[in-house]
Design a protein around this nucleic acid. Structure first.
Lengths: 152, 152
DNA sequence: GTTGGTGCAAATAGTTTGCAGTAGC
DNA sequence: GCTACTGCAAACTATTTGCACCAAC
């Protein structure tokens, strides 16, 4: 794997930010330093870097993927209002072994665990039902898929 | 909400199957009964039915969404080989309250928990590392995003 | 100098939408 | 009869890819 200036810049920017940018957000950032870089290059680099393990692709199930410069185990809290992703301390991780008895035919390799909710800025957008009480995750997920502000 | 024959058929097919079809798979199924139905109509109906709560949109984070005719709480085991989704008994559910201490600013409304692994048919595609031991979920997820066979 | 990486633009895949006609209530 | 719903096709969004040139090793 060659160390091109594009690749170096993308990795560096991703490591420096605590946000979890989308490919396009990252493209906008790196363009300030390399005006001629193309979006295709950003996608290609995000792909090789995440395959190689230097970064993580976060599958937020939103319309766009987000990327995390920290490849170590930790949880993500995903805002259903704006789609932004916040890191959560790994002490809350759940071990995949907990589920090992589930199904003899299905070979479990891991779990996907994400915290869903609303960040301070999006509390106003929160469905009424959540103002009194906690409720079903999926319902909220459905309701909010649309409003993906570009998030930092 | 009107009960059109298209809507009725889509809901009926979804309730009858234990697979978790994609929109296109469902379209292929209902076309056998209503040859002129359009894919747009299938998408529109999946949207209203899931917003209304009759079905669930499963956010498998694959390239295509899948739909579940059973709106009740249960877990999904997602095959990283073919993208197919299998229901898991709700006794394994984890309560969102477990995470309530995570962050005072973030209003938690739920969690997303999915079991990742390989179904019997895809065990051959499984990365070598899993043949000896369980390993990190995300690595496998990255590796397998590509191979979404149309699943049933 | 070899070849992996780049910029560009076109292609692709999944999904959404505008529109004019249709059918459920 | 009103109007939500439909089929169709075009549009849209995120992402991928073919190609000719370039630069890291």
């Amino acid at each position: 794997m060659r160390t091109t200036k594009q690749r170096k810049l993308i990795l560096e920017r991703l490591r420096q930010t605590r946000s979890h940018p989308t490919a396009v957000e990252l493209y906008d950032q790196v363009r300030r330093f390399l005006p001629n870089i193309s979006l295709g290059t950003v996608y290609r680099n995000l792909d090789v870097l995440s395959k190689e393990g230097s970064i993580r692709k976060i599958e937020t199930c939103g319309d766009q993927n987000r990327f995390d410069g920290d490849p170590h185990d930790h949880l993500h809290a995903i805002c259903l209002g704006c789609g932004r992703v916040k890191d959560i301390d790994s002490e809350f991780m759940i071990d995949a072994d907990k589920f090992s008895g589930i199904d003899s035919e299905f070979k479990i390799t891991g779990i996907r665990l994400e915290i869903l909710g609303y960040c301070p800025g999006c509390k106003a957008d929160m469905p009424l039902e959540y103002n009194q009480d906690f409720a079903k995750p999926e319902a909220a997920l459905q309701a909010s898929k649309k409003s993906n502000k570009t998030g930092g």
